[in-house]
């Protein structure tokens, strides 16, 4: 009980810290750090998505960059057409480009969710290492598709010239954009908490630990896991849309398997199955990358050593280390 309490305090602290950094930066007129905070919030959001599948559903997806990238491309492509004044699709229905934020988000969630449903349907027939590898394979397929098809510039990617518009808000203002990302991050965490705490969440937890037991009480594990997988991809897809807006650029590199690995690192660094873990993981990763990268061009070597140390000696991630004891299983 005490430990649960500790973790709650810790979570509030984490959330407040992520809020404090950009506010401080704003006061000191250092807009760069606001962008960094937005990046942390967005990557954490991608991690929150993966955490739902990986942490709570036990589905180790090594292909979440596919959903991140698809979300990014959905938003990027629509906004590209809006800028050019061209149509995205003529047949069977006409779909125009759009620069309305909500439309872009909706498209990102829809596309990543739909693709996740197809990938999930096939992948969830497998388990264990097979699941890890088949999700990787699907992500690779989408990566090569994006790189070689000329329609949206292939590997060169698409530059976006304007931030989308959300009624009443100036999205091109760095601080406003951060607040939007931050709000979505907290909303996604809140949703995760609700999902995990619901009857559905109990079934998912049961599917993770023992599928046979779940079947024995008359619930088929497959649809439960598939639903969670699709939800997970949708959250990560939304993060992709925000990432593309932040960078003003979308390219196949956000579909690469390195990014799948990095999203996994966010989750594991923070602590698998911890609601606020991805924030800690993403923040730590970006700070490490930036700080070490400022000192030496061999930053990847030191990053690798630190990550290895965390896996070997800090089970349960940073939150596990601070709040004590791995979670109950």
């Amino acid at each position: 009980m005490l430990e649960m309490r500790n973790e709650t305090y810790l979570n509030v602290g984490i959330a407040l810290l992520l809020l404090a950094v950009p506010l401080g930066a704003w006061v000191m007129d250092e807009s760069y750090y606001i962008t960094v905070a937005s990046r942390v919030a967005i990557l954490a959001l991608a991690g929150v998505g993966l955490n739902l599948a990986l942490g709570f559903g036990g589905m180790v997806s090594f292909g979440h960059a596919a959903f991140f990238g698809l979300g990014g491309y959905a938003a990027g492509v629509l906004s590209h057409h809006a800028f050019e004044g061209s149509v995205f699709l003529n047949w069977p229905v006409t779909i125009d480009g759009s620069d309305a934020t909500l439309t872009l988000w909706f498209a990102a969630i829809l596309l990543s969710g739909a693709v996740a449903a197809i990938i999930g349907m096939i992948s969830l027939r497998t388990s264990g290492v097979y699941f890890i590898m088949i999700t990787l394979a699907f992500a690779q397929m989408i990566y090569y598709l994006a790189i070689s098809l000329p329609t949206y510039n292939g590997e060169d990617g698409l530059p976006l010239y304007l931030r989308s518009s959300l009624p009443g808000l100036d999205m091109s203002d760095d601080l406003t954009f951060f607040f939007v990302c931050y709000a979505l991050l907290l909303l996604a965490i809140f949703l995760s908490v609700r999902i995990v705490g619901s009857r559905f969440g109990a079934a998912l937890e049961c599917a993770r630990q023992n599928e046979t037991r779940l079947s024995a009480i008359g619930i088929a594990p497959y649809p439960v896991k598939l639903t969670a997988f699709v939800f997970s991809a949708m959250i990560t897809g939304l993060a992709g849309a925000l990432f593309v807006e932040l960078n003003g650029f979308v390219s196949p590199s956000i579909l690469s398997w390195h990014l799948s690995g990095e999203i996994m690192i966010f989750v594991i660094l923070g602590g698998v199955g911890r609601f606020y873990g991805p924030i800690v993981g993403a923040a730590l990763f970006i700070v490490l990358e930036t700080v070490i990268g400022g000192y030496t061009e061999r930053w990847q070597l030191f990053l690798g050593i630190i990550l290895l140390g965390v896996v070997l000696f800090a089970r349960g991630g940073v939150i596990g280390l601070l709040a004590g004891k791995a979670r109950h299983d």
Binding site: I132, M264, I305, V311
Partner: peptide
């Protein structure tokens, strides 16, 4: 497998 993936990714 998750820990194995991350550890060997670091390698």
């Amino acid at each position: 497998h998750l820990d194995q993936v991350l550890a060997t990714f670091s390698l």
